[in-house]
Every structure is written in structure tokens, then in C-alpha cells.
Design a protein around this nucleic acid. Structure first.
Lengths: 210, 210
DNA sequence: AGTTGTGAACCGATTCACAGCG
DNA sequence: CGCTGTGAATCGGTTCACAACT
């Protein structure tokens, strides 16, 4: 089977498999069955096989999947066999933390430029350049940046998204507590920490905590 | 209909409705139909009515929903008509940003204690007390804290979760890039920023960006 | 007339079960 | 024989359509 509409949950699980395969590789394990991989990452084996089947036939019947090969295959289909330059908009508390967060590099994402209305007194790490927000369109366009993280005040999130879209950005990860409506031809992922805590509160209340 | 198994997506949407109702209230609108609310937050009206029907009958036929009433009802069923004390574990880049993040208070969550292996030289905001990680079980138990945010190195996330569970915590929001397996009787929500970016990378690659 | 609340139909994702292949 | 790849069965959430109600 190949390439029709791939559900987002499937893509999320590919990322999960990648993490798990990393561990297997570190343990020196060379081959893994869908049963074992499923046990390790808490996913039904048939689910794993279906997920992978969207993109091709990566396994060997009677054997399983070769760990290194499968990692490469997943990275390829996910577009992770390269470095993605990412722009950060909003260098406040959260933005600064995200800039310093080492995890992104490890996954091939490089926060190479940052924007804020106020640039004075703001520190950005080595390898990242801070610009005033007014320069956003120009810099993003010039550098050909396609991915951005939005960590501004919620009242500005939608407008920033539109401006990024006009500058050529195709994917936005939004941390502002306000759902951004995707501009034309742009993929938006909203990460809402407030909502996550509220969901927890709900389940705790249901179960009669406190 | 009342109280069986409520899907997590439903709970997430309740949180979304709440945001939207807030805006309506600020605009001075007193009554809203599921059609209008749906238009505003991008959800099918039938979906909204079904979501609410899990918990009771909050609307008035021929009229719609009274904004203030519905807000109170949703807050009540979600357990948000109170303050939740939350413990933060891991006061690094991300943890510090979360401590300073004003959004939590606004939603009734109070980060009143924080833990880290190293406490020297670490600043926490007014109203929050920083303890060495070794004090975690004692403090959490004494204060009766039921909810925690984990922002430690991924290698320690699972262990921290187990310790929190033993101390009486019932809900964990995990920011470490490693899925925590829920300890018995604990609800865990994983927020994985790396995975979110990878999902974006996938869709951008699919659409042939860059 | 207008809008809710809900059974029925629909749709998509998950799991099962087995044929196909190494 | 063992494990993958996949059609069929199942499950659960979404949408439709309308009866119930104000």
C-alpha cells in the first residue's frame, strides 16, 4: 500500500517507533519483530505493521525488521534525514526555554533565528540570531525558512501566523494558548499546556481525587 | 445521558468551549446556540451537543445555552471550580519557564512547590517554594498534592513518576521526551515537543516543501 | 419557529486472523 | 516454522436527521 491520506496518529506513532528503535540500537539489537517492538512501546503489533505498510514493505517475513534499516526508512518517509531550520517567534519565558532546549537539535531541528518585539537585553544561544519582529518577513524569506515555532502572547498568535505564512512558512508549532486557524497551505499544530492540565483535572475529579 | 466512559477528545473540546465562552462573555453575549459556538471554535454543532450530553442537559430548546451558566457547568464537570496545587519536578530551562508562565494561574492551577536535585542559585517566583528532590515524597504527601508536572531529563522521568505516585500524586503532565508508563491509579499526559515538530516535518515533506 | 437532545447512519482507525512468503 | 502484510471484522467517535420541547 502506498501514500494516500495518512492519519496524524500514525505519524505520531512513527516518531514513537523511532525513539524505541534508537534504544534497541543502543542495546545492540539488530532485528526486531513487530511483537517485540509493540511490547516495548505499548502498541498493538498489527497496528505497527499497518502503520509501516502505508509507506512500503520494510520487514522480512519470518524474521522481522532490521533495526538500522527501519530507522533509516522511517526517517526518510518522515523527512528527518536532513536538518530543518526553524524560526522562533516570541523570546519570552517559554521562547527562551525552547531556544535552550537541546532536544530539538538531537532531532535535526535547528532554531537558527528568533524574533521579538523587544530585542534589548535578550540572550540567545550560540548559533542563533535575534532580530526585531519587524524583520520577520524579510529574514524568513531570505533564509527560505519553512518551519516556525510561535510562543507569543495569545492575542498576537493568529496575526504572527498569517505573517509567517506570507513569508513562506509552511508549518507552525503554536504554544500560545489559543488555537491558530491554519492559513492557506500551512500546517499548524497547537500545543496547549493549559488544556492538558485541565484534562488531567477532569480525570482526577472523575476518579474522586481530593 | 450520564457518566460512562468519556473520550479524551471530548474533554479536550470542553476546554476549548470554555475558552470560546470566555470570549463570548467578554463580548457581553449572554446566549449562544450550538451552531454559533460551533462556528466560532470550528466544531460541528451536533458534536458540541453530544459532548455536553455526556454530563447533562444544559441547554434550552428553541433558545440555546446561557453563556455564564454553561461556563459554570463545564467548570464543574471538569473539576475547575477550585484551585489545584501542582508540584513541578525539574527546574531547568523548561521547568523555569513553566514556573513563570502566567497561563496556569489563570486556569486555576498553582505551582506551589518545585523540586530539583540542585537547588543552589535557582530562582523560583513568589508563592512557590523550592526543595531538593530528596524531599519530594515528604512535601508532596504533607501538602496533599495530587497533580505534578515533570520536566526532568528523560532518563529520570519514569522513576520520578513512580516516586510521585507513591507520594499520592494522581495526575502527571510529562514534558520529558520519553513516554511515561502510567503507574497504577495515575493518569499521565505526555507532551512531546520533539514529536510535534517531527509530525510537522512529515506533512511538509509530503507536500513537497523545500 | 427555533434549537436542543439523541437514535441511526456513517466513517475512520484499530484489531483480528490468516494467507503469503522468506 | 515464524513473522509480515493485508482483507475482514470490530470498535468508537462523528455527523445526520428528526422528534421533543420551549
Amino acid at each position: 500500500m502506498r501514500r494516500f491520506k495518512i492519519p496524524e496518529v500514525t505519524v505520531g506513532r512513527l516518531s514513537l517507533y523511532l525513539r524505541c528503535l534508537n534504544e534497541l540500537e543502543e542495546e545492540g539489537i539488530e532485528v526486531v519483530s513487530s511483537a517485540e517492538l509493540g511490547r516495548r512501546c505499548g502498541v498493538n503489533p498489527a497496528q505497527i505493521r499497518k502503520d509501516l505498510a502505508y509507506f512500503g514493505e520494510f520487514g522480512t517475513r519470518g524474521v522481522g525488521y532490521y533495526v538500522k534499516e527501519l530507522m533509516q526508512d522511517i526517517k526518510r518517509v518522515m523527512g528527518l534525514n536532513r536538518t530543518w531550520e526553524v524560526a522562533l517567534v516570541g523570546v519570552g519565558n517559554l521562547g527562551t526555554a525552547l531556544l535552550r532546549y537541546k532536544g530539538f537539535q538531537r532531532h535535526g531541528f535547528k532554531l537558527s533565528v528568533a524574533f521579538d518585539i523587544h530585542t534589548e537585553g535578550k540572550e540567545v544561544p550560540e548559533g542563533c540570531v535575534l532580530y526585531p519582529a519587524s524583520e520577520m518577513e524579510r529574514v524568513v524569506k531570505e533564509k527560505g525558512i519553512k518551519m516556525a515555532i510561535v510562543a507569543v502572547h495569545y492575542s498576537q498568535a493568529q496575526e504572527v501566523a498569517e505573517r509567517l505564512a506570507r513569508a513562506g512558512v509552511k508549518g507552525i508549532l503554536n504554544f500560545a494558548p489559543m488555537r491558530i486557524r491554519p492559513p492557506k497551505k500551512v500546517v499548524v499544530k497547537n500545543v496547549d499546556m493549559g488544556t492538558e492540565l485541565e484534562i488531567l483535572a477532569f480525570y482526577l475529579t472523575m476518579r474522586g481525587a481530593k
